[in-house]
Structure formats: C-alpha cells, structure tokens
Design a protein around this nucleic acid. Sequence first.
RNA 1: GCCCAUAUAGCUCAGGGGUAGAGCACUUCCUUGGUAAGGAAGAGGUCAUCGGUUCAAUUCCGAUUAUGGGCUCCA
Length: 641
Amino acid sequence: MPTITLPDGSQRSFEQPVSIADVAADIGPGLAKATLAGKVNDTLVDASTVLDNDATLAIVTSRDDEGLHLIRHSTAHLMAQAVKQLYPGVQVTIGPVIEDGFYYDFAFERTFTPDDLTAIEKRMAELAKEAFPIVRSEIARNDAVKFFTDLSEEYKAEIIRDIPEDEVLSLYEQGDFTDLCRGPHVPHTGHLGHFKLMKVAGAYWRGDSDNAMLQRIYGTAWASKKDLKAYLHRLEEAEKRDHRKIGKQLDLFHLQEEAPGMVFWHADGWTIYQQIEQYMRQRQKEEGYKEIRTPQIVDMSLWEKSGHADKFGDDMFAVKSEDRSYAIKPMNCPCHVQVFNQGLRSYRELPLRLAEFGSCHRNELSGALHGIMRVRGFVQDDGHIFCGEDQIQEECSTFIDFLHSVYEDFGFTEVIYRLSTRPANRVGSDESWDKSEKALADALDAKGLDWKELPGEGAFYGPKVEFSLKDCIGRVWQCGTIQVDFSMPGRLDATYVDAKGERQTPVMLHRAILGSFERFIGILLEDHEGKMPLWLAPNQVRIMNITDKQQDFCKKLEKTLTDQGLRAQCDLRNEKIGLKIREATLGRVPYMLVIGDKEIESGQFSVRTRDASEKGPMDLDTLLSGLKAEITSRGRNPLEG
RNA sequence: GCCCAUAUAGCUCAGGGGUAGAGCACUUCCUUGGUAAGGAAGAGGUCAUCGGUUCAAUUCCGAUUAUGGGCUCCA
C-alpha cells in the first residue's frame, strides 16, 4: 500500500496503487485539473503513471519549469498531428524542445509555405480544443519497426533501429496520431494552446550535411497567453537592438555586394574600433605581450607545412603571382612561429607572448555570413604564448583573469564557458591531450567557473576553452578562446634551448579575448542598444546653440573640449533646439550641452543625457573633470549631478 | 555549400502586366525658436543583374548575385 511523500513533507497513504492524477485529485480538484505530470523520486513521468510502492512525489504543473518543458514537447507532437492530418504524405522525424519552444522536422515532397503554417496553426488549435487524451503504451522493437514501416514512416523506423536493444520503446497516442517518444507528455491536448509557429527552415536529417534536407518548423509555446505575448514582445524589442540596424542608424559601417562578408567601416564605427584597439594594445602591453605585425599574403608552402592547407584549404583565398601560389592568411599562428624562430631562443625568454591585431580572411560558406558577426575578412586580437609544458597551467590561469578583466571593462558579466576536447581526427599523443585538457579544466575549476564540456569539438592540434557571449536574441557567439597546441611548434621547427643546453620544442597557446573586432563590436552594439559607454562613444558631447547669437561661444567650447581629448562637436544648424536634441538622442550621443544666453552669462551648464535625464548645472571645470573621470573609469564613475 | 524567403528613392516601406508612390533624409527659401520632429518649394528611381513568356514586364517564369532566417561549418 503506497505511502506518498509530498514536497512539503506531508504523507498520504492509499489502500491500492494510485496514479499521480489520483494523488492530485485526492489533494484537490484545482490541482487535479492543473496536473501535467509528476516527479517520482526525482524522475519526471506521465500523470497516468501508477504508483504501487512508497515514493516521493512532486506534482508538476505549468508553473514548473518541467511543466513548461512538457507543454513545449507535447505542442511539438500536436503540430506533428496537425501536419499529418493536413498533409498525409508527410513523414515525421523528431521534434525536440528548444529554448523558448520546440521544432519538428518533416520530410515532405514540397515545401511548406507561410499559408501552410497558418493552416497548421489553426488545425493545432482545433485539436487542442478536442482535448484528446495522450496515452502512453509500450511496444516490442519488431512490432514498432513494423508499425512505422506500415505507415511509411521510414525515418521513425530508422530511429528505432538505432535505439539500444535494452531500452523500452514507448508510443504516445493522441486521437488519430501515434508517435514514437520517450515522453512524458501532458495528459491531454487541452493543456496546450498558447503557441505560435515561427518559421520554416531547412535542416539536415541527423544534422549531417550528406543527408537529406528536411523541413523544420519552429514554434514557441508557453503556459499562458500572457507569457506568449510577453515573449513575442521581447523578440520585437530585441530586433531593435540588431547590430545591423544600429550600424545603419548610427552610420557605423556597411557591407555591400561587391565585398560579401567584408566590412566598410565608416568614421564613427572606426572610432569605436580604434578605441577598442588602443585599449587592447595598452592592456596587452601591461600583461607582458610584445605586439608584432606579420604579412597578409604568405606562400602556400608555409600553410602546407603548418597543416592548414590540408585542413583549412577550402577556406583560404588563394593568390597566384609569377608561378607562385600564396594564400591570404586565414590565421596568424604560423607567422608568429616564424617570428619566434628568428634567432636562437632560450628558456629564459619563456613564456614569450606575441600579440598581433591580425587581419585574417577566410572564405566562409556564403550561407554562414551574418552581419559583422560572421564575416570573411576580420581582425583578431590574436596572441600566441610560447612556453614550456610546466607553464601551461599558470599561463591559462593568468589569461582567464586577463579576459575577465577586459570583459568587465566592456560591461560583460555573463560569459558562457566551454571546453572542447579531443576530436577523432587529431595529432599528438594521448598523453599530451590528457595533460592539456587537464590544464584547461583545472584553470577553469580553480576560478570556480561553471563550464560545459564539448567532447570531440577541439581543434586537431589541441583542446580549447571557448568564451562566448550572447547577442540580442540569445544566439551564442564565441569570442575569446585559449587553445593548447602541442603540434604546430614542432611542425614549424620551433625550438628553444633549455637549462641543460638541450633543444626543446615549446608549447604554443593560441589565445584571443575579443575574438574578432567585428564580432565583438557587433555584440557590444547589441548589448548596449547602440548606447556605447562614454569611453567608446564615437561622439561624446554634442554642443547646440539656441540661436545664431551663441555660435562663436559654441565653437570655442567645442575647441576647449576637443583640446582636452574629448570627442565633441557642435550642431549650429538653423534648427529648433527640440530637433537637435531629438537627433542627438537618436544618435545615442551621451551628453548634450544646450547653449543659450543664460548659459553664456552664468557659465553654468545643464547637461542632458541620451536617456533624457539632466545633470548639473555645473561649471566648465566640473564638467570636464566629470567627463574625464567617467572615461578613465570606463563608466564606473559616471558624471554626477 | 544546402533549404526557405526577400531585393522598388540615401533610409523605412507601400504598390502593381500598360511612361513609378508615401514618410523621413537631401537642396533652396521663410523662420532665430529654450530641452525628442516649425513652414513652404524643389530635386531624387533602367523597380538587384541577366535571360524567357507577352503587342507590352518593375510586376509572371527561370538563372545569377547579395541579404535575412535556419542547417552544416566557424572567431
């Protein structure tokens, strides 16, 4: 006779085995209605699951994260049911839950149109209204294969064949639709309703580009209408922060057809870029890096020697001249080794840290390009640390601190950490891999960082840590990285003389903090919605006159500010002050000085911010020192008043 | 590279088989106005490129290129 322990510690005993739904009903009719599933001894199961032994049970409703997950998963099934009804020739494949929603991949001889999506959505709503019970059953492997083969569901049959022998196969049936699924699901389709189909996209079967292209329908689903609305609103707001939109609005950069994936930086965009470069240059110097510069175009033989021609060949832009073949460099590492190789190196020079703002070109697949986040021509804040094996751990640790300090100056606190470990195709001994993977993992652990392992995702020459940031709609972009490389120094004959006078091959650490200027600026723009912090803002102060009478004063004020190193400019147009303020605000200029007779007479300035707040009034000296403090503190000491 | 969509004025977009439309921006004039849009006039487009269908194509069809959303790949 089962005794059920609930999360609050209370217990309920039953004469006979009971389902989770029964327990919920026993507690109250409201809960019974809201029950989506149960967590039995920490395992999520269907509400229909019968408990015949003592257990701890948490009832899952749409208020729980697990409940929302179930809603999304069941909505994916609901969509598959609707699609099968509307388009009987479709084959279903898989339909998992993703962030904010779900997708389902279908095989169909024609493509789904936006009209199809509308029809599917409508049918889904109808099916939800019917409140079909979603019923679980178990099936033997052979029966399952036959079941789906009879339905001409070849993809499903293939999935079943790949499921391990010892695993129980379960089916979920709702109305006329049955799907192979591990579950659990909500009790009936009536629990579903707050969803929207978002888009159709192509997706390879099993994520392999050699396989057939399926059609993936993405949807979003929520526990309530309010949540759905809030999500759609959030998306809309996020789109306003899109770096491509802001880049155009603020006249920062453009791209054009003749140079796909390569950025034309405009004056204001280039100012931001320059500020970042100068900042990084200074920081790297402080961290003991030597800045170097290496060629854009290098003979193919070097790329063959380094292994890039083999592994990276298709991505390189090739150049021919006088019967020689060159490649425009896709990365800087081999060039840095050439610098290392000049002269005889001593162990006393290690770790040798070389840095370069290295312009790289990669012939990325046309479909991979994305604004300035993913381009073909970009500049890395690249650096290579040549060191001994015993120095790896400390160099990694120091680097992570350095990276954090830089990210903090830019206002980034949410960093995603991932460790990519040995791929199937690799060079170097297992011993080296063990050592370097451990060095990276230890460096992360020592700082108490929450990191995820990506097994098999490492570079062919070594494991790497990726430091990623999110864009405005939550897409994750790798920015910083540190990679241990036991291979390239040897391939390119790098050696140093150790304390015993013997030649040794150094280890090479590849590292970047920003990743690429292009991507990092893209993320920065989205993160700040174009409102760059004062130290990065291309236009820091806008001085505007009320009437022509104040022109000369404004010009003098502009010179005073620019002489102090501030990026200030006048707006002396014959326009009303309201318009000038509007344009400066839309232009995300941090501070505005409105100059009329009053200000000239009193020498006191009220400062208007781009967020429409007022600072001051203050005199010129206070203003100047306040602005400088904000700039040198990188926003930590904002202008007061 | 693959799947889908899109490409009209500097920008944001509407339109539609029969010599192209709006708002903003731009130019000129009037206005000298105190914290998010003052008024008037003017100028501006081989409707992405190349083919096809048609008496006629910017509009329909196809290809190409680029862009957007995915997939694959990647900083």
